[in-house]
């Protein structure tokens, strides 16, 4: 609905002022007039649609955070309201896509697979970090507030800068390493069923950054690795195929001052994880592992 740039009249004044100083071509005038009329028509259409939608009982009201540093008039963050016709099984992502396609093509958000695998559409929905594509509309209270992830810089609308999150993920070396190889050159590196079961939940991470955004400590301490990175470290540190040497190296990474010790067991990450990874449990286990490891050398 209210996707207009505010201060419309001011802009019109500016154009008028410019017109006086340097005489514009007839074409410019015509184009300006055309734009103005198109704007008006769009506003009218949107108002009508909103009215119809509001009258229709089966619509949902979405209040979406808008911000665009590149467009004057959109630099001040605001909330736009969209009325979306409800269909059974509709997710927050579906509603956002409908809003973008129907009302305002400038509405920006990340999404790709739409089935909770790619992890690109974590957002702050009704005050909680949610994966928009697996959050059912009918489980939410209206109006549904959709905001970008807290504790990250907003690039535009619902898109946040995840560079820092990826840096922290990098820091734990999130890939398989070993110097213990099986005898035969073509033999596979086999894992026991029990060991696979142990790391199973930790492998489910889709790098969506919901946990990092929910973590109070990560918000204050920029160096803190954060739940996702520590979970990644857990996934490999607990993998027996990596061997003792690599495990020691991994423990060194996670037990630096801004590693596991910063975790205050607030359980926020565990609450928000869309893949139900018991993050706090993994962090706690690594703490105990690190303590045991150090006691050995005393």
């Amino acid at each position: 609905m209210s996707t207009q740039i505010p201060k419309q009249t001011e802009k019109a004044d500016e154009t008028a002022a410019e017109t006086e100083s340097e005489a514009p071509s007839k074409g410019d005038e015509r184009r300006a007039e055309k734009r103005r009329r198109a704007d008006e028509q769009r506003r009218q259409r949107e108002a009508e649609e909103a009215e119809r939608a509001a009258a229709d009982e089966n619509t949902v009201e979405l209040r979406v955070f808008r911000y665009d540093p590149d467009v004057e008039g959109k630099q001040e963050p605001r909330f736009d309201t969209f009325h979306v016709p409800f269909t059974k099984g509709m997710t927050v992502l579906d509603a956002l896509m409908y809003s973008r396609d129907t009302y305002d093509s400038s509405l920006t958000f990340r999404h790709s697979c739409r089935q909770a695998v790619c992890g690109s559409d974590a957002m702050f929905v009704n005050g909680g970090q949610k994966l928009a594509c697996k959050t059912q509309i009918d489980e939410l209270e209206e109006p549904i507030r959709v905001e970008p992830l807290p504790h990250a810089e907003v690039t535009k609308d619902l898109v946040v800068d995840l560079e820092h999150f990826y840096d922290q993920m990098e820091a734990v070396e999130p890939y398989f390493q070993t110097n213990e190889y099986p005898d035969g050159e073509l033999e596979e590196q086999r894992q026991t069923r029990e060991n696979r079961e142990k790391i199973k939940m930790s492998t489910r991470c889709i790098w969506c950054s919901a946990c990092m955004s929910s973590c109070n400590i990560a918000a204050g301490d920029n160096e803190y690795l954060g739940p996702a990175a520590i979970n990644k470290a857990y996934r490999f540190a607990m993998d027996e195929r990596e061997g003792e040497d690599v495990k020691q190296k991994r423990l060194e990474i996670i037990e630096q001052e801004h590693g596991v010790w910063r975790c205050q067991t607030q359980f926020s990450c565990t609450e928000v994880c869309p893949k139900d990874i018991p993050l706090t449990e993994h962090i706690q286990e690594l703490k105990r592992e690190a303590v045991k490891n150090n006691l050995k050398f005393w």
């Binding site: 540093p69 909680g128 807290p150 990250a152 820092h164 067991t265 609450e271």
Partner: peptide, 27 residues
Amino acid sequence: MSQSYNRGLIEDFSRWREFEAGMWAWI
């Protein structure tokens, strides 16, 4: 994580209503 602008209430105070048990315990 620096802020490109102040998100004010969204970042801080208004979030307490969404806190879960673990967060209250910590506070």
